Simulated assay, not measured.
Amino acid sequence: MSQVLDELVALLSLETIEENLFRGASQDLGFPQLFGGQVLGQALSAACQTVMADRHVHSLHGYFLRAGDALLPVVYQVERVRDGGSFSTRRVTAIQKGQPIFFCSASFQADEPGFEHQPSMPEGIEAPENLPSEMDLFSPHAERIPQPMRDKIFCAKPIQIRPVNPGDPFRPKPSEPLNMYWFKADGSLSANPALHKYLLAYASDFGLLTASLRPHGASFWQPDMQVASLDHALWFHRDLKMDDWHLYVQESPWSGGARGFSRGSIFNRAGELVASVAQEGLIRRRESRA
């Protein structure tokens, strides 16, 4: 395991303060606010630590309430809503400075057989080994990125990303509302299935709103854009291995009212659908981004 991946695993592991109460360190990625994926991954980690080992998370639905502070830890309070014959439900509230910044509900189920079907993975997609990394694509534009953020972008990353259909984020042109990339953890991981799901929750927040900006020739990197996640839903369909490549297909069927809606399908290299994602976010033009 690489050092940065080891640090991310530790970040998602959490400290137990008291029964149903956990604390997680924060990660400064150079953005104005705490990265939403960190809160998603840590909230899921907290919920999983209160559920019987034979029950596995199958869905998470959450709302981002306030911008988090990347310089402060986050406290997670878990409410054990229900433990039924097959399903368990947990509600998690993430707290900073005495106020909730995020809350979610997560549902867990014991394994059982059932009907199966899924969509096909897109065909003709270039293999990740043949594609440049996200950092390779950003390198020619380094001078356009503010210095504090630049230092965080051009450093070792725990999650590798290889865009399939990259655009120019600094000179965007209108295109179809579709964003695709391969991603994986940068190193080997233990076989703990829950760990791989924490990491997928963390990575599931990368780039989703990009799909809703593309038809409008807009980008997160434009100084007059305000972009923020409002809610996030994640469904796990099968176990996965985050230390192998997965294809993230993101599409946006709608935007309006200064909001964009995106949904995502995550496939493993065998073409199996391992997770589905949906997110609505704020996409607003403004005079400054203070």
Rank of each mutant, 00 (worst) to 15 (best):
L5S: 12
T16E: 15
I17Y: 05
I17F: 11
A25R: 12
S26C: 08
Q27S: 01
Q27W: 15
P32G: 06
V39Q: 10
L44H: 12
A46W: 03
D54I: 14
D54F: 07
H56L: 01
S59T: 07
F64Y: 01
A67D: 13
P73I: 03
V74F: 04
E79F: 04
S88N: 00
T93K: 12
A94G: 09
K97C: 00
I101R: 05
F103L: 05
S105N: 12
F108L: 08
F115N: 09
Q118F: 01
P122T: 02
N130T: 13
S139Y: 11
S139L: 06
P140T: 14
I145S: 01
Q147S: 12
P148T: 12
M149C: 09
M149P: 01
K157D: 09
P158D: 02
I161Y: 04
I161S: 06
G167H: 07
G167D: 15
G167Q: 10
K173D: 15
S175G: 15
S175Y: 02
D186Y: 12
G187Y: 09
L195W: 09
K197L: 00
Y198I: 03
L200A: 04
A201V: 00
A201N: 06
Y202S: 01
F206P: 14
L208H: 03
L208R: 03
L213D: 00
P215T: 02
G217F: 05
A218C: 00
F220M: 14
Q226Y: 08
V227N: 08
V227S: 00
A228G: 09
S229K: 01
F236V: 01
R238V: 07
D244S: 09
V249T: 10
S255L: 05
G256E: 14
A258F: 12
F267K: 02
R269W: 04
R269V: 09
V277F: 14
V277L: 15
A278E: 05
I283M: 13
R285M: 10
